[in-house]
């Protein structure tokens, strides 16, 4: 059989690697959702997105410490509070950044890239000064640890399941917000035609600020989820930013479905290949094929028809 594995082995490898891929997929989706909203809606390239995510991770870390110190009784449920706080912290910071920085640059999209890169450097240094350069890990409550056995060969970690449930919930919430709620209608109106949206009385500046805040807030939640699969350090966010941008561009910048589909493709391809190749080669191959596909189809997988 293939590389000395029997068919049954291969099946369970695929299932377990697939599941590992799903956790990566969840973090990708959360990161990319925020980025897709910001990039798709406003054309702003948010290079500091990884740092917003890390802010969420640090908030989660602080929560776990505080609960362990002062409210050990409620430690089992701290994670849910941490998620909400992470969302608020990143979202508020995002809105502040939009107000102070981004709104001056809407006509120069390439410059947003440089400015937010500068912002990411500052944030990294701030994290390093406050939390130290060393990686910190979050202590999970007992019930989140361990794994369940589907069959004798396939085991699935519980925190992975939680991350996935969380991602599904947030994706649903974003979908409802953008496509079903009145506010989402305003967002889409601004995306499709800013001048007309403004003419019919939509406060486009407010929409921009809230959209940017929402995108950053989701990145904060991604940070919470991230603490379960990796350790938090000031520069950890930077490692994800390129992958996330590729996810967004690959999926077609303005399409949420496309973002989800491309996050799924990229993360699954990577984690399945990682089992057979070295991690770095898997990443190279996946990135290369994505770049290759983008060269053939620059508009991404899914395209939203917009009049410009």
């Amino acid at each position: 059989m293939f590389m000395g594995y029997s068919l049954g082995d291969l099946g369970s490898i695929l299932a377990m690697q697939g599941f590992a891929g799903l956790v990566l997929f969840s973090v990708f989706v959360l990161m990319a959702l925020g980025l897709a909203i910001i990039f798709g809606q406003m054309g702003v390239i948010n290079m500091a997105h990884g740092e917003f995510m890390i802010l969420g991770a640090y908030v989660t870390f602080l929560c776990s410490r505080l609960f362990a110190a002062y409210l050990p009784g409620a430690f089992a449920v701290y994670f849910f509070l941490a998620i909400i706080l992470a969302f608020c912290a990143s979202g508020l910071l995002g809105m502040a950044v939009e107000w102070a920085l981004i709104r001056h640059l809407y006509k120069r999209p390439l410059d947003t890239l440089l400015a937010t890169w500068g912002l990411s450097l500052i944030l990294q240094q701030v994290y390093r000064s406050i939390f130290g350069a060393r990686e910190v890990g979050v202590e999970l409550p007992g019930w989140m640890m361990g794994s369940t056995h589907l069959t004798s060969q396939i085991e699935i970690p519980i925190n992975g399941l939680i991350v996935m449930a969380l991602t599904t919930l947030i994706t649903l919430a974003v979908y409802l917000l953008i496509f079903r709620a009145g506010w989402g209608r305003q967002v889409r109106a601004v995306t499709q035609n800013r001048a007309m949206a403004s003419a019919v009385g939509i406060d486009t500046e407010r929409v921009d600020r809230l959209t940017y805040g929402l995108g950053c807030g989701i990145a904060g939640v991604a940070g919470s989820a991230f603490t379960m699969i990796g350790s938090t350090s000031p520069t950890a966010g930077q490692l994800y930013i390129v992958d996330t941008f590729l996810v967004v561009v690959f999926g077609g910048a303005q399409s949420l479905i496309g973002t989800i589909a491309s996050a799924f493709t990229i993360s699954q391809a990577r984690s399945t290949m990682e089992f057979f190749l070295s991690g770095s080669m898997a990443q190279v191959l996946v990135l290369l094929s994505v770049v290759g596909i983008l060269m053939l189809r620059p508009q991404g997988l899914f395209v939203l028809k917009i009049r410009r």
Binding site: L101, D111, L114, W117, G118, L119, S120, I122, R128
Partner: peptide
């Protein structure tokens, strides 16, 4: 890093 970040933002 702080100075460099601030410089980018200021320049842009």
């Amino acid at each position: 890093l702080l100075a460099m970040g601030a410089m980018f933002i200021a320049v842009v």
